Simulated assay, not measured.
Amino acid sequence: MNNWTRKHNKFSVQNRLTPTARELWQWLLDEMPEGSNEIIDLRDFNKWVKRTRGFPHDRKTVKSAAQQLLDKGVLTQAKSYTAYVWKWRLQPIRVLMPPPFRKPQKKLTFQSEIPNLDPSNPQPLKDEYLTTTTDLEDAESGEFEQKLQACRKAGIYYYPKDAQFMHGFSLQEVLKAIIYFLFNRDGVRHPEGWFKVCLEDNWAGKEKERHQLRVQWSTEGLFEAIRYCNQKMGMA
């Protein structure tokens, strides 16, 4: 995934792309040059996913990911041949995220009230913009490293290039998923693939919902369920 940049990641976060949509975009970057029009079979993407993590995505998930890239303008000029075979244009990231427009700095005729500062020189503003952008990128990078470190401590080992999907989740969400993994790790053969699906499908959150339902369960509910099943068997 050498073609994936910080701009690609920033666009993904801003447009709330699902992890599968980001994964498909990353795969497309290796399959076709940005700005080109090519025929792509989504089943090839799913074969790659299976080789990478041990099992493929659900077909509906792949179709939904492709549709999201179309909706967000990552893919354009789409032409469908079958449900899986498409011809489309992969938009360059420079088109999706053009450089911000900045008005030319007007030269001021009056003397600056601040010593040693020429008001006609826009350099301080430029430095401030670059510093803010760099600080944001450094913060994102630092949080990503914390996620990788937490995974390693739990016995889940990713190369950074294979863990890009975690950019779409907060550190808190990743930590909750790790705790859920640790309680269920005895039956896990492939931690990296298991954890990725766990995070994307929010298994930890769903388990909390299931626990709340179990807490609300009562003996009356048990007998009601038995009566319901008996009625259905009698009707069969």
Rank of each mutant, 00 (worst) to 15 (best):
172 Q>K: 12
85 V>A: 08
219 T>Q: 12
86 W>C: 06
144 F>K: 00
210 R>G: 04
105 Q>R: 07
157 Y>R: 07
27 W>L: 11
80 S>N: 15
67 Q>F: 14
1 M>N: 06
182 L>N: 13
21 A>H: 05
194 W>Q: 03
31 E>C: 06
15 N>M: 09
89 R>V: 03
61 T>I: 05
122 P>Q: 07
126 K>M: 04
144 F>I: 00
9 N>R: 14
211 H>I: 15
127 D>H: 02
29 L>P: 00
109 T>W: 09
11 F>N: 08
127 D>M: 12
51 R>F: 12
68 Q>M: 04
79 K>L: 07
35 G>I: 02
187 G>D: 14
207 E>A: 04
207 E>R: 09
183 F>P: 01
230 N>C: 11
100 P>H: 08
24 L>A: 06
136 L>A: 15
9 N>I: 07
231 Q>Y: 13
229 C>L: 12
5 T>I: 04
94 R>K: 09
216 Q>F: 00
92 P>M: 00
73 G>K: 07
235 M>W: 14
94 R>F: 08
62 V>Q: 03
76 T>C: 12
58 D>H: 14
46 N>S: 06
113 E>H: 07
125 L>K: 14
3 N>M: 05
42 L>P: 00
72 K>W: 02
95 V>N: 06
13 V>H: 14
191 P>C: 11
124 P>R: 05
109 T>E: 15
234 G>L: 07
165 F>N: 06
141 S>G: 05
35 G>H: 06
232 K>H: 06
85 V>G: 08
204 A>Y: 12
210 R>N: 11
176 K>D: 14
76 T>K: 15
6 R>H: 08
62 V>G: 11
48 W>L: 05
132 T>Y: 10
13 V>I: 14
87 K>A: 13
201 D>C: 13
37 N>D: 06
106 K>I: 09
198 C>S: 09
45 F>P: 00
47 K>Q: 07
215 V>I: 08
29 L>G: 12
56 P>R: 11
121 N>Y: 11
46 N>H: 02
92 P>N: 03
65 A>S: 02
56 P>S: 10
148 L>S: 02
75 L>I: 08
174 V>I: 05
116 N>Q: 13
159 Y>N: 10
75 L>D: 04
111 Q>I: 03
163 A>S: 05
193 G>P: 05
54 G>Q: 06
73 G>I: 03
36 S>G: 03
162 D>C: 02
223 F>Y: 04
20 T>M: 03
177 A>F: 00
190 H>P: 01
34 E>L: 03
183 F>L: 06
206 K>N: 08
144 F>Q: 01
183 F>V: 01
32 M>L: 04
74 V>T: 14
111 Q>E: 08
112 S>E: 13
129 Y>P: 00
43 R>D: 11
42 L>R: 02
27 W>V: 10
159 Y>H: 07
52 T>Q: 11
191 P>W: 02
47 K>N: 04
174 V>A: 03
35 G>L: 08
70 L>C: 10
140 E>Q: 10
72 K>D: 04
141 S>Q: 10
58 D>E: 05
42 L>D: 05
221 G>L: 15
10 K>Y: 09
40 I>F: 00
150 A>E: 12
211 H>S: 13
212 Q>D: 07
102 R>Q: 15
236 A>K: 10
66 A>Q: 12
91 Q>N: 08
57 H>A: 02
169 F>L: 11
190 H>R: 04
166 M>Q: 02
86 W>V: 09
25 W>R: 11
